[in-house]
Structure formats: C-alpha cells, structure tokens
Simulated scan of single mutants.
Amino acid sequence: MSISRRKIYEEIADLIMKDVKEGILNPGDKLPSIAKMADQYQVSSASIREALNTLSVMDVIEVKHGQGSYIKARMPLGFEHAFEIITRKDIENLLELRRIIEVGCVELACSQAEEVDFEKMQDALDKMRTAVMNNELGEQADYEFHMAIAKSTGNQMLIDLLGNVSEKMIETMKETRRIWLYEEKKSIQKIFDDHQAIHEAIMHRDVAEARSAMLGHLEEVASVLLTRHGG
C-alpha cells in the first residue's frame, strides 16, 4: 500500500487506528518491525517512527524498548470518538470562562503572588518540561500551573471557579495536545514555552505582559480546539 499525501505519518497513524477500531489489530498485538512497515506502506523508516511516536503519545500503543510496539490493552478515553470528548458548546463556554477568569488571575498574581507561589508555578513547569522530555502530553501539570496562578491571587472564589471545571479543563488540555501533535504537527515544546512566558511575566510583576501572554495562549488553544470541532 502506497502513501503519497502530504502528512505521511498522519496517514499511517490513521490506518493503524482504523485497524484497531475494526478489530484487525487487537489489544496486546505486536506491530511489525519499522523496516517491515516501511516496506508495507512504501515510505521511509523516519515516517514510520514518527507515526509510532504519535500513537505512543496518544496512548494507543506502547513502545517496549528492544521488544517492539504493542497495541494498548485499554484505549484512551474518547478513542472511539477521537477528539469528540466534549461538545463544541462545552468548549466555547469553557474557553469563555477561562478568558474571563484566568486573564484576571494573572493580573492579580502580578501583585499578590509570593515566593511560595512562584515555586509552585515552577514545580508545575518542571513537570511539564519532564513530560516534553518523556514525550508525554503533560495535561495534569498544565492544569496544576493554571491552578497555581489562581491560588496565588488569594481569592478563594476564583480558585473554586476553576476547581469546579477542573475535569473539563484537563480533558481539553489533553485534547489540545493531541491535536497539536497529531494534526497541527507542532511541538508540545511550544505549549511549554507559552507557559514559561506567562510565569516570567508574573515573576517580573509585568501586568501588561502577563495579560498578553495568557490571552495569547488561550486564544491559540481556542483556535486549535474550535477548528477541530467544526469552527
């Protein structure tokens, strides 16, 4: 089978996912070697590695070093309806709430945050950096970073508001990363860099820069998610 369209690794990943959904590949099955798959699809070994890397990050396969790649025993949440975990309206409402609350939070954080708050933000960033190095999505660390900012304001109502939508926040963060990696072909590193810029602006007590960095980040997230959900 020959693959010739633009994003070759996506095409291969799609075909593997399709085989899993149709029961051609089953949980625990070992995939052919990279060399055999490259020959099967008539593409380079690099394209096969990129496709496998994407599926690994999406939690569809497990790569066992020295042994090969295996289909996961359990598919990730939402696998049967890829990228349709929550509705478009849910996403719109959540992003609107996040813009209103989180832009305000960074403004307050610039004046209210103390050293212990900066340390908590840095801890979350360190976890995100580790996720990047380990080729993981890092959505939990992402959420912890945003909550650390909210907590630094000292306003319990703001903290509670974000806490009440924590499940949807984490799921959209995960979905953003999957789309970013799988469809947009952008690096998870870019998301880390955006968060680091927010952190640095807060540490410098630069309200305008912190507001701009947070707003820019949320607008980019909105663009990625809403484009994928028919917007």
Rank of each mutant, 00 (worst) to 15 (best):
K120T: 08
A222P: 07
V63F: 04
R5T: 12
R49S: 15
R177Y: 05
I85H: 07
G216D: 04
Q156C: 00
E175Q: 08
R98A: 01
V20C: 04
A210I: 08
A82V: 09
I100Y: 04
M17E: 12
D206L: 07
E219F: 06
D123P: 01
M157K: 12
L52W: 09
D160G: 05
R99P: 01
L52G: 11
E219R: 11
Q40F: 15
S152M: 00
V207L: 08
K64I: 08
T87H: 11
H199P: 06
I91K: 02
E220Q: 09
I34H: 06
R88N: 03
S69I: 10
M169Q: 11
R228T: 15
D193H: 03
A201T: 08
D194H: 03
E171R: 13
T153E: 01
R6L: 07
R178H: 09
K89S: 09
H217S: 07
E50Q: 15
A141K: 00
I16P: 00
V43P: 02
G104M: 01
V106R: 07
S44E: 07
A210Q: 15
K64F: 02
L137M: 11
L215K: 13
G28I: 07
E144T: 01
E220Y: 03
G23M: 10
E171I: 14
D142M: 06
I170L: 13
T176K: 04
S45P: 07
A109W: 02
M169Y: 10
H204C: 10
D194Q: 02
S166G: 07
I71V: 08
E11R: 09
H204W: 12
A35L: 14
V103K: 08
Y143G: 00
F118S: 01
M169P: 04
I86G: 00
L97R: 04
V60N: 10
S187M: 07
P76V: 00
Q40A: 15
A222N: 09
R129T: 01
C105D: 14
R228A: 09
M128T: 02
Y9K: 06
I149H: 03
D14V: 14
V20F: 01
M17W: 03
T87I: 02
D59E: 15
K89E: 14
R211F: 14
Q156D: 13
R74T: 12
L25Y: 14
H199Q: 12
V224D: 00
S4K: 15
D126A: 10
R129N: 04
A46D: 10
C110A: 11
L158Q: 07
T54I: 13
L215Q: 13
K64N: 04
S152D: 01
A210F: 06
T130H: 08
H65I: 14
T227W: 11
D194M: 02
